[in-house]
Design a protein around this nucleic acid. Sequence first.
DNA 1: CATCAGGGCCCTG
DNA 2: CAGGGCCCTGAT
Length: 324
Amino acid sequence: MTKKLVLNKKISIILVPEAPYNFDANFHKSSHFPSSDNVWEKGRYWITMIWKSKKLGLIFENTGTVDEPKIKVNIYFQKELSKDYIDSLIPEIRWRFNFDQDISEFCKRFKNDNILGPIIKKWRGMKPIAANSLYETLIIYLVLQNATVRRSVQMLENLFDRFGGKVKFDGRILSTFWQPKDMAKSTEQELKDLKVGYRAKFFTKITEQFVNKKINEFTLRKTPKEIIKKEMLKLYGIGPASIEYLLFDDFYFLDSLETIPPWEQKIMSRIIFNEKLIPVKEILEFFKKRYTGWEKLAFHYIWEDIFWKRKHQHIEWLEKEIRL
DNA sequence: CATCAGGGCCCTG
DNA sequence: CAGGGCCCTGAT
């Protein structure tokens, strides 16, 4: 079923992100569920990408520091790439890995904050990272809904196997996403067989909206927040919770903190208030007052930090809140 | 063992 | 706007 593509041609480029840029905190989000289209090691990151219908393999290597960031990007491909193609690919890579957003003000302003201070010390230069196209991201948000981590992983892997494919580069085999047209002909039942449950209809409808070019992510990137919100809410299966993720992780609005899903509410209650459960409204007010203009980025720093800690430290209460 | 709640969204009343 | 239904998991 799955096609394996060998990508044995390669070009390398050096890209310089806006400082501060924290390589590991950006290429690896420790709170995210693992997925076979990417691999992270300290200072190195592999991911597959579809750009203008071509499948690519990318390796990012950290060759700089937080304050003088420099990244070597190895691009693997199958058939020769034109200059125009590469000229359009580079800005896209810069966007997907958020090379150009300036967050220095945030890091400066809160470096003595009781909560954020110690975290900024560790993770200065951490930013929201889309990594994927809008379509791919929506797929991820759909498998995230109403599911444990294990189930989300299973759903995405099933979809990769059926609609995406495998790509081999740098001695690794990674999954690739698919393009909307690849899923367009599938029936709801075919999707249900991949164990995605009631989400089948969501995939069908959203895919259709993309095939019919109802959504232009490049235009959206230059669109005001409220309009993006309105447009994205029109997508079938996308509601307030997904919007919350979209605005920050994919459109890079650093302030917009409007809803907090239940498990995040529980975890934040413990970290910030040392209580079991604080009303969402109260948490929102806390961020709004204390980190005005940077609410969501502040949330992100606190959030990712606890998950980084979890990697080498057993945190009993946290384990119980993560739906594995 | 069988219920039942929780999770995010759509749809109906 | 409230509440049922979707689909599954984990707790009771």
